[in-house]
């Protein structure tokens, strides 16, 4: 029997096949799904902000940030037997929920940008992306197949 493991905001978790990871209602946050196909180990981080270096204070939760969050997720997966070199990534979220110009509201875009830079730094290839635009997304990341299932309120579910 496969379980569904929920990842909260600014949190990260891993599962092995046949379990599934889920994170609900990503807005400007980005869901980063990492998968080791050989070992069938899946990881999901719910990233809230781009860079830990920009934190004013309150950086005790390193999982919030793209750089420190992804680093921790990779370490966790490696400690469970995954190989960093064999990982691929799928990402979702980073929407702009309110349509105005100021930088606060482009946080989604900045999150996507930071996530991509961090993944590139580790040499991890992004094989699917459901990002940007202006709507919320719920992500299920299936540990047995590495398929990312993206649901939104008014749109068809995507399996990528």
């Amino acid at each position: 029997m496969a379980d569904i493991v929920t990842v909260g905001i600014a949190d990260l978790k891993t599962v092995k096949a046949p379990d599934t990871l889920a994170t609900y209602a990503l807005g400007s946050c980005v869901g980063v799904c990492l998968y080791d196909k050989e070992k069938k180990i899946a990881g999901l981080a719910h990233i809230m902000l781009p860079w830990s270096s920009e934190a004013v204070q309150n950086i005790e939760n390193k999982r919030r940030y793209a750089d420190t969050g992804i680093a921790e997720l990779i370490d966790l997966m490696v400690s469970q037997g995954a190989s960093a070199a064999g990982m691929t990534a799928k990402i979702a979220g980073g929407a702009k929920m309110f349509s105005v110009g100021s930088s606060v509201f482009n946080i989604g875009e900045r999150n996507i940008d930071a996530v991509k830079k961090v993944l590139a730094g580790y040499g991890i290839r992004i094989t699917a992306e459901e990002t940007g635009l202006n709507f919320g997304r719920t992500v299920f990341f299936h540990g047995d197949t590495g398929i990312m299932e993206v649901r939104s309120a008014m749109r068809e579910t995507k399996m990528v």
Partner: peptide, 15 residues
């Protein structure tokens, strides 16, 4: 939209 997605906007600020 989804409440969680809407709240992510102030969440980023209060984080």
């Amino acid at each position: 939209d989804m409440v969680g997605a809407i709240l992510s906007v102030p969440a980023v600020e209060f984080a």
